[in-house]
Design a protein around this nucleic acid. Sequence first.
DNA 1: ATACTTAATTAAGAGATTTAAGAAAGTAGG
DNA 2: CCTACTTTCTTAAATCTCTTAATTAAGTAT
Lengths: 395, 395
Amino acid sequence: MQRGSFQWMKSLNKSIILNKIRIDGPISRAQIAKETELTPPTVGTMVKELLAQGLIKESQLGASQGGRKPTMLVLHVQGFHIIGVDVGPSQIRFIISDLAGEIADELLQEIDPSIENEAFLKMLKQGIQLLMNQHPSLQFIGIGVAMHGVVDAEQGISIFAPNLDLRDIPIKETLEQSFAMNVKVENDAKALALGESWFQVGTAEKSMIAINIGQGIGAGMVIDGKLYHGEHGIAGEIGHMMIDLRGKKCSCGNHGCLQTIASGPAIADRAQELIDAGNSSILAQQHMPLTAEMVHQAAVAGDELARAILHEAGTYLGIALANLIHTFNPGFVIIGGGVAKAGSYILEPIMEAMKSRVIYDRAQDTVVQLSKLSDYGSSLGAVALVLSELFQPET
Amino acid sequence: MQRGSFQWMKSLNKSIILNKIRIDGPISRAQIAKETELTPPTVGTMVKELLAQGLIKESQLGASQGGRKPTMLVLHVQGFHIIGVDVGPSQIRFIISDLAGEIADELLQEIDPSIENEAFLKMLKQGIQLLMNQHPSLQFIGIGVAMHGVVDAEQGISIFAPNLDLRDIPIKETLEQSFAMNVKVENDAKALALGESWFQVGTAEKSMIAINIGQGIGAGMVIDGKLYHGEHGIAGEIGHMMIDLRGKKCSCGNHGCLQTIASGPAIADRAQELIDAGNSSILAQQHMPLTAEMVHQAAVAGDELARAILHEAGTYLGIALANLIHTFNPGFVIIGGGVAKAGSYILEPIMEAMKSRVIYDRAQDTVVQLSKLSDYGSSLGAVALVLSELFQPET
DNA sequence: ATACTTAATTAAGAGATTTAAGAAAGTAGG
DNA sequence: CCTACTTTCTTAAATCTCTTAATTAAGTAT
């Protein structure tokens, strides 16, 4: 679209109206005009077009304000659907979502650890095709892919996926050729952040940060409803934020990275270490290698050692969060990923450590919440990638 | 301006053209049309208006491309002037700058440490008036104020200025009443960042961060040419980034904040501490209390202890920088403030520590430079506050 | 039943960009 | 030196979208 042209201005105004309906609907034409400061005729013509496109629909009549009843407009959430794909360390999750983030269907597939680029792309294509075939009546408008590791979001390439040991996978190009629709690719932590901002925080107006704690620790930042990538696309790689100069050695070669204390594997390792040192715990009876999940379950069961370990991890996360608040100062923080399942056992020490370290009173009240999207966080984030382009095209 | 109206679009297009001339001038109308994708008639009418406003002027004729010679357009840098004010811990610097950041005149005044709000505001007004009176022929379009401490940039209020122990000073309101022109107020580290981005980095396209190391350590972040404030306006308060869990106690009550190691006072304290412990150094002969400036001079003179201290401070700064790159991932980093005067004695260990800790090759090449604006950084930043509004009005 | 409100649409008017054409100023070749 | 061709810039009519004003539609209230 030619920037600065009439068409461009029109599409911008149209987006404003569409977004208004999405966020504040059901809403009448008259109220849209009031709140957006556009004139009633402008709103009228735009609404007519949006109705024709099938993006919105008229619902019931609203209550009278002393005159004619307004016809309320709402997003036609079932009008179009989106495919969301979340490529994790060991499995791929495919979902079909409507425009409101309601999941209509899903598919989970295990990844062969020795998979190669070609087979991986084929697996993606087949999974998507399978889901689409099962819902021939639905109209799909885009595919979003959340991928762990380093991603070039602009090109739509997975540059490096450490857990699969794959490099330079041209995901966007391949899928756009196969399905002839808009494809967005993004790092999973960033997708999670957008998803949370889109479906949970709601308006996506505030700056927010979503921290994904699993095998590693990553974060995504949303500013004014848009993902922030940084110069090299590595903004949010907080797993390697140094917290403790003289701490444990990290896989990256440095010491005291956040990952060495608060990631899933770090929690499991720490438990093993303390048990080996002779501390008593119900975890000592485990025959399988310990996982963070087991530590959490032990904590729920009342195990003191497990609780202490989670408390320690939470404290470090809280310190890291204080650092983030002192640098990025988000209005909203979401904790997601596997470790977030430990619930209050991890959230409480996080809050405690954060509050005691943030030096501005008002910033101490930064809202911190556990993700409610659970296992669907990243896949819904992938959906949000497509939605964010549909609803707020580039200025 | 009504968003989404013709006037709004026009002013936007006008800004685009003005900016094009500012950055790429001298440039012809034809070339502006090509590069901005606006049509020649549109560019023509806008240019006519900008010429009438006195913001740009026609310079010489350019070289022929095989036809009529183009008339080149440049920013009329002397057409308007701006007052920049930098309120430091002990003095106020007033400057007059043209649109290109050339300083036409300046004024430096000492602040009485026991000053109160009223007297402070009076001092500001008198300083500005004095400078303006000395240049009656100049046309002033705005006043920018860079203030240390916590600032509410939107309201234009200095909320807390620790070094002067002042609170809630309504700077913007007062100055706008007195001088009837646009007044912008901002934290000094943030102003410095904008100034560096505006006058040094040039295009202000990249994301960048400017770190101001003096009494404390603060940073300002510029994203897409705009200052980033965060939710509570404390984004960039990196002085309290925790680096060393078991480090020194900071004035904020926590341990291991960056400030406790790398600020000016911390460097001086560290020197005193090591000398008291019996280390030999030419600084030991000093009778006055040590300052970071003295440590720097001793380092230049070859003093091993001084060099070691600066190396240590630089290393910690480098670690903090690595943390920033892993979270904010700026394309450009500027080190300013008093400690930056230590030059390579501080920059080299910063780079060394940063490069060894950043885990992505490309990010290791993040450009890090010492500020070249020296003592004028914050005051030119204050000027940039006004300029940024003039040249890129809110979308 | 009449007057007043509010909601939505229609019709004419205004503002800014675009398309198309022309004027101005140079270059280049014969 | 004159003509043909380029490039730059301006002018004039056409087009697009928003705005203002008036109209229709549908309720509420006395």
